Amino acid sequence: MTRFLNKILTGAACFMTAFMSPAFSQSVPKKSFLVCGDSKVLVVDYANSKDSIPEIIWSWDAHQAMDLPEHFRSKLFNTMDDCKAVRGGKQLLVSSSSGAIALLDVKDRKVLFHASVPNAHSIELLPGDLVAAAASVQPAGNKLMLFSLKQPDKPLYTDSLYSAHGVVWNEKRKSVFALGYDVLREYKIVSGNSLKMIAKWTIPGIGGHELQPANASGDLFVTEHHGTWLFSLATQQFTKIKGFPDAENVKSLGRDASGQYIYTIPEESWWTFHVKFHEPARSFAFPDMHVYKARWFGNGL
């Protein structure tokens, strides 16, 4: 445990020097990945990690973020469940099922935006400084929410979506995709501050969980309770992911330009202590962290 914590502190301190450079985004090793769980988000250098020990080069802990309001810091960011690098890796989006979302500046770790989102399970940056969030099962949740970075904690738009778990922006189609319990939906931005659903598809299973871009064409990875799927935008069909070891309750799934998969599967309840890779296979241990999701930094595509 001590060795792991020391690696976080030492690695983060060393990497902070690189972040202070104007060329910070170029300083992040190309094959790096994000890990989120508990109140933390980590950046790990894949190539320089040894065996199963991750080389942690940056970290952020909501409990230590003094620029967050106290109830966000101590209560609403206790269960980090999504993290995405945006704007060339200069900023990070994070969400917590304890009830909040935020946008972070990576260089100085400042919180640029935060908002309450009941049982938040995913977050996405949209054009026009808009932020979409998936609010999952909770009396005040079960909906897709839209915010402006200029108006923290004030939703511009909501749409009912039971067990909302995923949200992704597709630049080519100029569309927002959102995943619920048994449905995948497509939305368009209208009037600059609202969304309109234009299509929906029943997913091949129940308990929709992960939604991530699968390739440069914008096809989507979708996971549900019993399996993992590829949704083709061209054919509008779901097919099993070729070459990926199908499993139940996959919490996160991504693939980089080289074809290597990154994924997480619960070991206890909803969390895991390992981040796994496939083609080629590898596994990193995080023994002191309840890991929920892991993503290639910048999506890897």
Rank of each mutant, 00 (worst) to 15 (best):
S96N: 06
L104V: 10
L92E: 11
F77D: 03
C83S: 13
E70G: 09
S95G: 08
L68A: 12
N78S: 13
A62K: 06
A65D: 01
S96D: 04
K84G: 02
H63V: 06
R73V: 08
T79D: 15
D61N: 15
P69T: 06
G99Q: 07
H63N: 02
N78D: 13
D81F: 08
H71F: 14
L103N: 08
L104Y: 03
K75H: 14
L93R: 05
L103C: 00
K90V: 00
D82S: 15
P69Y: 10
M66W: 10
D82L: 10
A65G: 01
L68V: 05
S74H: 11
M80F: 05
L92H: 05
L76C: 06
F72G: 09
L68R: 08
D61A: 00
T79R: 14
W60E: 10
S98P: 12
W60D: 09
S59R: 09
A85S: 14
R87S: 06
R73C: 07
H71E: 15
S95C: 15
W60G: 07
L76E: 13
W58T: 03
S59V: 07
W58H: 07
K84P: 12
R73P: 04
A65N: 10
F77E: 10
V86I: 15
E70R: 10
D61G: 03
L93G: 00
A100V: 07
A85H: 12
K84R: 14
D82Q: 08
L76F: 14
I101S: 06
A85K: 06
W60L: 09
F77S: 02
S59C: 13
A85C: 06
A62R: 09
H71M: 14
G88E: 08
L68C: 03
D105S: 13
A65S: 13
E70H: 01
E70V: 11
S74M: 14
S95E: 07
K75Y: 13
A65Q: 01
M80D: 05
S96V: 01
Q64R: 15
D61P: 06
A102C: 14
L103E: 01
V94E: 03
L103W: 11
A62C: 08
M66V: 14
S74V: 11
C83L: 02
L103S: 04
L103Q: 11
V94Y: 00
R87T: 13
D81H: 15
D105Q: 13
S98V: 00
K75I: 05
G89S: 01
G99N: 10
A62I: 00
L93T: 08
Q91H: 07
A102M: 10
H63K: 13
F72I: 10
N78K: 14
G99I: 00
G88A: 07
Q91C: 01
R87P: 08
N78V: 08
I101C: 04
D67I: 06
V86R: 04
W60N: 06
D61R: 12
T79C: 12
